[in-house]
Design a binder for these strands. Structure first.
Lengths: 177, 177
DNA sequence: GGCGGTTTGTTCAACCTTTAACCAAAGCGT
DNA sequence: ACGCTTTGGTTAAAGGTTGAACAAACCGCC
């Protein structure tokens, strides 16, 4: 119930005599149901993904994303700022996660020779093994929760729907390529 | 980039000679793009909603949901445990948020006369005013980010898609009614 | 070459969430 | 009525995230 947009069932219901000038366009019954369902997905899908990785691999989804991004980069290395963009997180958050991963021996930091300000994060051999070991289970879960229950047509729609929503939230986004 | 399922571009790529027996079914190129886009929505839509409410009303999305749920209940009152289910949160989280809302004068607690264990949360007059004041802006944002950019057909699909995903995550869910 | 302004990254503090422990009241069998 | 278990809720501690402040290095311009 993230959604349903909590329109209090006021006494002055549908009529257009609002206090502040314009009467808000409330959601229709059907739209409310849609919003309710979407809200639930928004709230639970990330949790479910996290749970699987935590359970089977002992890492958070975010940690996985960071290591996965490194694993696909040349030299398995990325600058912190680039990595932050790819992981859709701020620098502080990334910095602490990398510290955590470094302590576990999966990532190591090194100064960038070409730019004294920036740091390079590199996935270690152990880190690569960790990603390889974790990926199948994670992919399987993604497939089970999202791709298997939907038809091909729905997946195409889901792609287009997501794309449109993102465009509104952040018009200049790298996710659209 | 929550998603893309971080399949490390291994040297042993598509072939089915896996170490642990079964080769995972990787995602197709197109599915990866879909997953990437969905991941971005999962990550940013909640943030965008929170941002709007924080900016315009000074409350979090969760606080709004709690108050909205109360505003639609008889007597504007709900038992904590029921409210927790409706807000899709655990009791501890709810308890602290209600404490916060109580301090702001928007909610008050009272013991349940019919059951000495449980507590009733009631939306005060001020709380009701707060919800009424916040709702239009929130609904407008939901509409702007999700409903306006999508076609009627896409909204129907989105409803069905969400429903299916939730069913897999949590087969016995009250959201389906 | 040196000075201001900007980028990059880390650290610190405040806040929120989650997990576990805890207490009080209710149900329930004897 | 007495214990035992279950349910409802709060509290305490631990972990993670966000925002502000800070240090270091680069860049452009004089």
């Amino acid at each position: 119930m993230t959604g349903q947009s909590g329109r209090p069932s006021s006494s002055s219901d549908q009529p257009s005599g609002s206090v502040d000038g314009v009467e808000p366009r409330w959601l229709s019954e059907e739209d409310q149901r849609t919003w309710l369902a979407l809200g639930s997905v928004l709230l639970r899908l990330p949790g479910a993904l996290d749970a699987q990785l935590q359970r089977d691999a002992g890492i958070s989804h975010f940690e996985y994303v960071v290591m996965a991004a490194l694993s696909e980069s040349p030299e398995r290395t990325l600058r912190m700022s680039i990595l932050a963009v790819m992981a859709e997180s701020g620098l502080p958050r990334l910095s602490q996660v990398v510290t955590r991963l470094e302590k576990r021996g999966w990532v190591k930091r090194s100064p960038d020779p070409t730019d004294g300000r920036s740091t390079l994060a590199t996935l270690t051999e152990d880190g690569w093994d960790k990603v390889v070991a974790s990926a199948p289970g994670h992919v399987e879960e993604v497939r089970r929760l999202v791709f298997d229950p939907l038809t091909k047509a729905q997946l195409r729609q889901l792609n287009e729907i997501s794309r449109r929503v993102i465009t509104v939230i952040d018009p200049d986004d790298r996710c659209l390529r």
